[in-house]
Design a protein around this nucleic acid. Structure first.
Lengths: 335, 335
DNA sequence: TGATTAAATCGAACCGGTTCGATAGAGCTC
DNA sequence: GAGCTCTATCGAACCGGTTCGATTTAATCA
């Protein structure tokens, strides 16, 4: 590998002049610039990013930290960020914490050790320790998906209260009254908001929610399945189930199928967030989806803005909340 | 941030002794080791990974390069690799080329610039240029998924010929003769092998394959949909469709649903590779799946072996080919 | 006790860049 | 031609570690 000193020797100038010419060509005379360019081409010089990062104190990379890269929601956002960052000369490094807060912390620390220019982070934690940890990081960060109370950072997400309310209202319009809700973890902002959207809408309609109709699905497949089963074995069954996310809703569909209930004839089903092959799932689930492309675009622009604009780093944090979209399916019937 | 010089000053030893103590405690006297340990704790010293990588010439990170991290197949493998690598003190950095060979090359070069200890790579290219590129890299690499002719590296994958043959045989056993095949890109090893598995099995059964029954689905959703439509509008329709991967098969299912064909009553369907929510797709597709956990485990162990064992680097490349598994569904009927 | 060897520690060079103050020379003014 | 400003270039220090040959110290042996 050719080093900058090889270039300097060949071009017969000092190392510092080469470095200057490469980072700020305007400050070098035309003649020496030519010489240096030739030398660079001749020896095939490419600057070592590691050495650059060490000397500069920061790299031209941004980190993308989520709990599950396999989730298409995060996948879309990643793609948007990547395209935008690449256009602005930055590489995206992806890390997956598998939802484990401790692992996420370690990964974030590692990325910061790598002198990342910035981080796009879907927070996995929520306690004070975690908030302090994120707050103490001295690096541009854009948080997304989960809004964590206490974290003073840019945030990009969807209106989850509205998402819950939209589907609830839809079910009410279809005549449903016995609506069950499979909730997510209570420490997650998206989960509580969706739950509130459901409860508020029911309350506004003057309908009391049967406490047995609210079960905890933890946003996961296994817990969602269990929660759905608990709903379905009750003597007084709900006429509709609202899943707070895709995993719990589809687990409910599976449970229904296994017990011999037909959807939507016996029980209607609606969910928040899409999955990859929803178009071939029968019935097509009525859902509310987030605008992942828009979210990804905002995250990307905001982060790169903070990174590239000198004064961008000190701008006060801002929240960007997008409106989700209703996507009708045929999993909800009128009763 | 505390540096190694702060530690040396506090412990009243030289910088080199601190470095030595940290990397090879046995070669330092018990007394100084204690002093150094105390000093490290006192100033909160953590070695800068960047500086270490620069000085050592390599980092303690491995790169994971695929065309689509969102694909659960790659997701499972990533998880296995990550767990194993973490246990051996290495971080995994994920990059997604979106299937673009040029982007993949740039990413691989960037990772090598980062002095990665090794790479787990699902090759996206196939031409001589690409083979030369991969061959020219002086770093432990384990390739997986696609076997590329000419690349002399460890390879971990499944027996794709067998995968195609298994499903074909299954359909033959059920009495099908007019079996259609939605193929993948001809430059991909997995695609050609699966195709050969289909053709060989048909030939062995003495059945001539109608050329109109072999269509190109490019392993993608859109091309798969188009290919399936071409199959379904023929006057002489197939009684069964075999999709060379999950995307083309599920696109075919969608096309069938849209045209009003019932599966399996009108047309049977089988596919290679699972998808995330296959259990709630109706009908449950009969398929052959790869053992992703086993694949991931082998990739992880092989890569870490090459990285950590001094002589591991020079061992000749080896192929690991696993047997896929038949998973019956109810998308194929006897005729 | 002096010579020999092994163990512990150190100093300096190095990895490959960046940055900043110093210096030399060119161009301009009076 | 002295004085001044700008521009182009350079040298040296630095980022924060590692490594290796040299040196000091301690232990072993004749």
């Amino acid at each position: 590998m050719a080093t900058i000193r090889d270039v300097a020797k060949l071009a017969d100038v000092s190392v510092s002049t080469v470095s200057l010419a490469l980072s700020n060509p305007a400050r070098v005379s035309q003649k020496t610039l030519e010489k240096i360019r030739h030398a660079v081409a001749a020896v095939g010089f490419v600057a070592d990013p590691l050495a650059q990062s060490l000397a500069r104190g920061r790299s031209r990379m941004v980190g993308f930290v989520v709990g599950n890269v396999g989730n298409p929601f995060f996948g879309d956002i990643r793609r948007e960020l990547e395209n935008y960052a690449l256009d602005h000369g930055h590489f995206v490094l992806v890390t997956d914490s598998s939802g484990k807060t401790e692992r996420e912390k370690a990964m974030v620390e590692h990325l910061i050790g790598l002198k990342m220019a910035g981080l796009a982070l879907a927070p996995s934690g929520h306690d004070q320790d975690y908030v302090d940890f994120i707050g103490g990081l001295n690096i541009p960060i854009v948080c997304f998906d989960q809004k964590v109370a206490g974290i003073e950072r840019d945030f990009v997400g969807s209106d989850n209260h509205l998402a819950g309310a939209m589907l609830t209202e839809h079910l009410l319009q279809l005549g449903h009254r016995r609506i069950a809700f499979i909730a997510g973890p209570s420490h997650m902002h998206t989960a509580t908001e969706r739950y509130r959207g459901f409860m508020d809408t029911m309350a506004n309609a003057g309908i009391e929610v049967n406490p047995n109709f609210v079960v905890d699905g933890q946003f996961t497949r296994t817990a969602g399945y269990e929660a759905a089963m608990r709903l379905l074995i009750q003597p007084e069954r709900p006429t509709a189930i609202l899943g707070a996310n895709n995993a719990v809703a589809l687990s409910a569909l599976q449970a229904m199928q296994e017990l011999g209930f037909r959807c939507p004839e016996d029980i209607s089903l609606a969910m928040i967030d899409n999955v990859q092959w929803s178009s071939v799932i029968t019935p097509r689930i009525t859902m509310v989806v987030q605008d992942t492309l828009a979210l990804g675009g905002i995250i990307a622009r905001r982060l790169m803005h903070r990174i590239t604009n000198p004064q961008g780093a000190v701008e006060p944090p801002q929240d960007f909340v997008l409106t989700p979209k209703f996507v009708p399916g045929n999993s909800c019937r009128r009763i």
